[in-house]
Design a protein around this nucleic acid. Structure first.
Lengths: 229, 229
DNA sequence: CCAAAAGTGTTCCCTCTACACCCATGC
DNA sequence: GCATGGGTGTAGAGGGAACACTTTTGG
C-alpha cells in the first residue's frame, strides 16, 4: 500500500456511550482519567483508532477492554470534528452508543486497563465531563430516544428473560415519561416479537410476573417495517 | 498547541451526497475524477479535511467549491472507516448529505475546481462509482428517507415558492411510492407550516396552481414536535 | 391481613385510507 | 373543444388515549 496522499493527517479516536439499565435507572459507564489533559476528570471511554482496525473494530476493542465482553450491541451515531475539541492536537472522534445487560452477578466490575477506575453513573446525575464529552453524551441519548421507537433496542438492556414491566421501565426512562400500563402491554405485544415463557419471576414478595423473551426470528421476518412505537 | 498525542494518524476526508430535485426527478451531483486512483470514474464530491477547519466547515467548503453557493442545507450522517476503503492509504471519510434548490436559471452549472466535470445524475441511473461511494450514497438515501418523515427537508429541494403538487412529488420520489393527492394535501397543510400566497403558477398550459412558502417561524414554534409524516 | 405489583377491557376520539368528479387554462 | 393538471369531501376502519379494579404472593 503506497502512501501518496496529501499530507495533513489527524488523529482519529472513538468514544463510547455505554448504557446500562439497573434497578429502574439508566446509567452510563464513565472512567476517571489518569493522564493529562483532564487528569482526574470523568470521561467517556475511548481511544485512538489503530492503523489496522476499522472504526467499528476499534469501538468493539474499546468495549472489550473495558468490560471483558465481546458482541456488545453498538452503533455509530455521530462524528465530532471541531478544530479545538482536544487541547493537545487535532483529534476527530467517532461516537458510538452501546447497550449492555447489567445482570446482578457480573454488574459493575469492568476492567480498567486505561483509566484509574470505571463506574456506572445515573444519567440524571452526571459529573462534569472532560473534553466535549457532555455534548457527545447528549447526542447519544437523543439518538437512542429516537431509535427506541423503531428498533428493538430495549431488549439489549434487559436480561434474556424479562417481565413486561421491566420493558416498560426501559421505555419510560429513555423517553423520559410515564406510560400507561395497559396501553403499553397491548402495543408491545402487538408487534408479535415477544415470546411468553412458562416461567415466572422468582424471589419477589408479591405476585410473580410472567417472563418473556425477545424472539429474533420473528423480528427478522418483519424487515424492520412493523416496529413503530 | 503542543502535540503529545500517540502517533498513528490517518487522513480524514469528507464526501458529500448533494441531492437536487428537477422536473420530478431526484438527482445527485457526481464528479468525474481526473486523478488516480479511479481516474475517469464517477465519484461523490469530496476532499481531505484541512488542519484548520472543522468537519462541518470542510463539508461547507467542498459544497462551495463545487457550486459557488454558501449556506447549502447539509447534515452529517455517517463515518466510513474500513481499513482498506482507499487503495492508497488509510482514509476515514465523514459523509454528509446536502440538499439544493435547482432553479431553472442557475441549474446544472457547478464549478469544477477538483474534477474534469460535474453532472447531475438521476439516482435511478447511477454509473459505477469509485471507492465505496455507492455504499455511501445508499446510506445517504436511506437517511433522507427517514428524515423526511420528521424534518421539513423537502422544502430545501424546492424553490422558495412552490405548488403542493411539487411538494408531493418530492415526497414520492424520496419515499419511492405514490401518494394520494387529497390525503397528502390535508396532511401537509395540517402541520401549519405552509403559507398560502396570493400568487399563482405562471406559464403553464393548464389551470395555474396556488403557490406556497415554507414558514420557518411557525416551524420553529413547533420545536420539531409535531412534524411527523 | 396488609403491602406491593400483576394482570386485564372498553369507550371515545381522532387519524388514516380509499375513492371520483368538476374546474380553470392554454392552445 | 380538448388535453392537462388543479382542486375538493366523505364514509368507514383502525389505532391511540384515558381510565380502575381484582388477583396473587410473601411476610
Amino acid at each position: 500500500m503506497k502512501e501518496v496522499l496529501p499530507t495533513f493527517n489527524s488523529a482519529v479516536s472513538i468514544d463510547c456511550v455505554l448504557f446500562g439499565f439497573d434497578e429502574g435507572e439508566l446509567k452510563i459507564l464513565l472512567i476517571e482519567r489518569n493522564e493529562e489533559p483532564f487528569k482526574d476528570w470523568w470521561a467517556l471511554p475511548g481511544n485512538l483508532v489503530k492503523p489496522d482496525e476499522s472504526v467499528d473494530q476499534s469501538a468493539s476493542r474499546i468495549l472489550h477492554e473495558l468490560t471483558g465482553l465481546s458482541n456488545i450491541y453498538m452503533e455509530q451515531y455521530y462524528t465530532f470534528g471541531e478544530v479545538n475539541r482536544h487541547p493537545q492536537g487535532r483529534v476527530i472522534t467517532v461516537a458510538y452508543y452501546a447497550l449492555l445487560r447489567l445482570s446482578n452477578e457480573k454488574s459493575l466490575k469492568p476492567l480498567t486497563s486505561f483509566a484509574k477506575k470505571a463506574q456506572w453513573i445515573n444519567v440524571q446525575q452526571l459529573p462534569p465531563l472532560a473534553f466535549d464529552h457532555l455534548n457527545i453524551f447528549d447526542k447519544g441519548l437523543e439518538k437512542i430516544k429516537r431509535r427506541i421507537k423503531y428498533l428493538p433496542i430495549a431488549f439489549e438492556l434487559l436480561p434474556e428473560k424479562f417481565t413486561l414491566t421491566q420493558v416498560q421501565h426501559v421505555y419510560e426512562v429513555i423517553l423520559g415519561k410515564k406510560l400507561d400500563k395497559r396501553n403499553f402491554r397491548k402495543k408491545i405485544l402487538s408487534f408479535g416479537v415477544l415470546k411468553e415463557l412458562d416461567e415466572k419471576q422468582k424471589g419477589v414478595s408479591f405476585r410473580a410476573a410472567t417472563l418473556y423473551k425477545f424472539d429474533r426470528r420473528k423480528y427478522a421476518k418483519l424487515y424492520g417495517k412493523e416496529f413503530s412505537f
